[in-house]
């Protein structure tokens, strides 16, 4: 039993150690009129990989057979990929390749209808690499050739592409500060405002109204109260806070209201008595 197990283990390690290689890898390029432009067998050990070029409607055919390197038996690896890699732009595409049970594989690249796995290309060559992966064999990687294909169309702009850029910085514009007009203009108008006073005083002096009771003890407190109110409001403009004004004004209003009631009652007496 133990011997059998050891044998199985050694077989497994032996099988795992066995690597995969390619037999008769061959590349063919045919033109649009089915004329064969190039037919070349690839050597896997060559230092420099061959450079191939494809026209816009050429067809590239790649055929090979995957075999075990020791026994030469055809093997179907679990994974077989062709990798197209643009070293300059960093673009790459990976294309799975179908392999038969006998290890034979055929890949066709028609440039008239390029596969979606072909990366966007420029005039730079694509490095074409074959990647083999297997559960029972060591993985393998073969540089096959450099392929120059016609440059792909530039990417079409998505309609909403412009929305994915930072907007220009918002700069606020403010209305310029208002300016105080020239002193002379202000002074002129301030002086101009004096002449309604002259008109007022002239007319009042012409009317010649007499105020015989102004200084009587009944009237004077009321007039003084009103005057004090005006002084208080002026003081408010110059210095005071609103709360202070309301406080002083409240006190003053009581006094003024009482004195006003007395003064106006007295006035009414005079008016009615005179009649």
């Amino acid at each position: 039993m133990q011997v059998l197990w050891l044998f199985a283990l050694s077989a497994a390690t032996r099988a795992y150690a066995a690597s995969l290689t390619l037999q008769t890898p061959r590349v063919t390029i045919t033109g649009p009129d089915a004329a064969e432009l190039l037919s070349e067998s690839l050597s896997l050990n060559a230092k420099a990989t061959p450079s191939l070029a494809l026209g816009p409607s050429d067809v590239l055919k790649l055929t090979f057979q995957i075999v075990e390197s020791e026994e030469g038996k055809g093997v179907q690896p679990h994974q077989t990929f062709l990798r197209f890699y643009d070293e300059v732009s960093g673009e790459e595409g990976v294309q799975p390749v179908k392999v038969t049970a006998g290890g034979k594989a055929k890949f066709e690249l028609n440039m008239a209808r390029p596969p979606a796995s072909l990366p966007p290309t420029t005039t730079n060559p694509l490095k074409v690499t074959l990647l083999l992966g297997s559960f029972v064999h060591s993985p393998a990687k073969y540089e096959l050739f450099d392929l120059t294909v016609p440059a792909s169309q530039p990417l079409s702009q998505h309609p909403s592409e412009a929305a994915f850029h930072p907007l220009p910085e918002i700069t606020h514009t403010f209305r310029p500060d208002q300016k105080i007009p020239a002193k002379a203009v202000s002074a002129f108008f301030a002086g101009f405002l004096l002449w309604p006073w002259f008109v007022l005083l002239a007319l009042w002096s012409q009317v010649g109204l007499r105020v015989p009771h102004l200084l009587s003890p009944h009237i004077l407190p009321f007039v003084a109260g009103i005057g004090a109110f005006e002084v208080l409001l002026f003081w408010y403009w110059v210095d005071l806070k609103l709360g202070q004004v309301l406080l002083y004004g409240g006190i003053l209003s009581v006094f003024t209201a009482l004195s006003g009631k007395q003064a106006l009652a007295k006035t009414a007496q005079w008016r009615l008595g005179r009649k």
Partner: peptide, 8 residues
């Protein structure tokens, strides 16, 4: 007197 003030 009042009218003069109004005019002013």
């Amino acid at each position: 007197f009042i009218d003069a003030f109004l005019l002013f």
